[in-house]
């Protein structure tokens, strides 16, 4: 197990190094002169030149890359062009909002997706199965930002039940976490149903039923635990969708997180802020994938690495 973990950790580090390199390349592919854009239309050529020198944009690309990687190891992601604050500070200020929304959305996704999939599988062919799977199909086919706008229209504008702007107490979490979580719940429900159907047909489930084990216990203890490995995989992978979805959901709900920071920075061409935000979300995703792998071993004692 520990050898597997070390190998997995090493691979994660290599992938992160590659991710950081990709982020650097993408930022340097951006057309236009960042120094010119940052200095503004009123700036003289001297101002632009000074700014370029202070941002080290006048040095060869390979030197800029070496400086970038060295700084990255010191958690120095540069300074925001617009606010002139360190990027890491900007991210740290928004990180709690993003993390809280991710966790709330994950709770919605699992709390809705897993029971829906279980109900659909245990009542295969019934009306409940059809309705659940149609709902799940709609969930994966709908743009999340549109769902968010519809929820705002219904619960905030028409019914005036819930707030929809910013982060101001528990009620403000409801609509963004539903927006982000329901699409993921749809994927989880589809996979849970498929996985449960496979397990429910196994001999040990029939044996448990034959021994008189109550139906709920058979479903939730015998079947669901054995069906949980693909479910954990999809939950882990869907966290990537959640983190990506943050970008647009945070924009719709004016949520003060990293996603909105990235979108705002894209508009002002604050490239280092975009780069930092993307790197941090990718790091989170890589760590989640690692934790997902570790979860397999805990859930299924047959798995030996």
């Amino acid at each position: 197990m520990s050898a597997y973990l070390i190998r997995k950790l090493a691979l994660t580090l290599v992938v992160l190094l590659g991710t950081a390199t990709c982020a650097f390349i993408l930022v340097h592919l951006v057309p236009g002169d960042p120094a010119h854009a940052l200095a503004g239309p009123q700036a003289t050529p001297e101002d632009v030149e000074n700014l370029r020198r202070s941002l080290q944009l006048d040095r060869p690309l390979i030197v800029q890359y070496a400086v970038y990687m060295r700084n990255l190891l010191r958690l120095d992601l540069g300074r925001s062009y617009t606010s002139n604050k360190p990027v890491i500070e900007e991210i740290a200020a928004r990180w709690p909002a993003t993390l809280q929304l991710s966790l709330a959305s994950l709770v919605v996704a699992v709390a809705v997706g897993v029971p829906a999939g279980v109900v659909a599988a245990t009542r295969r062919g019934s009306l409940a199965d059809t309705i659940t799977m149609m709902g799940a199909f709609l969930g994966v086919s709908m743009p999340s930002f549109w769902l968010g706008l519809l929820l705002i229209l219904l619960f905030s504008v028409k019914l005036k039940l819930l707030p929809f702007l910013g982060r101001s107490g528990p009620a403000s979490f409801v609509l963004p976490s539903l927006t982000l979580g329901l699409g993921v719940a749809a994927n989880i429900a589809r996979l849970t149903r498929a996985s449960m159907l496979e397990v429910l047909g196994q001999d040990y489930v029939r044996t448990a039923r034959g021994k008189g084990v109550p139906g709920r216990r058979v479903v939730y203890v015998h079947a669901l635990r054995n069906a949980s490995i693909p479910i954990v995989t999809i939950v882990g992978l869907q966290l990537g969708a959640l983190l990506g979805g943050q970008v647009v959901t945070e924009k719709v709900f004016s949520w003060p997180g990293i996603g909105r920071m990235i979108v705002d920075a894209l508009m002002t061409r604050d490239l280092l802020l975009v780069q930092g935000g993307i790197l941090v979300l990718s790091l989170t995703f890589a760590i989640t994938n690692l934790l997902t792998d570790i979860c397999y071993a805990i859930l299924d004692p047959r798995i030996r690495f």
Binding site: T19, C22, L26, A241, L266, V274, I278, S282
Partner: peptide, 12 residues
């Protein structure tokens, strides 16, 4: 390793 829409966003 880039989550979902983020790689596309970075490329745009």
């Amino acid at each position: 390793a880039f989550p979902g829409v983020l790689l596309s966003l970075a490329i745009t």
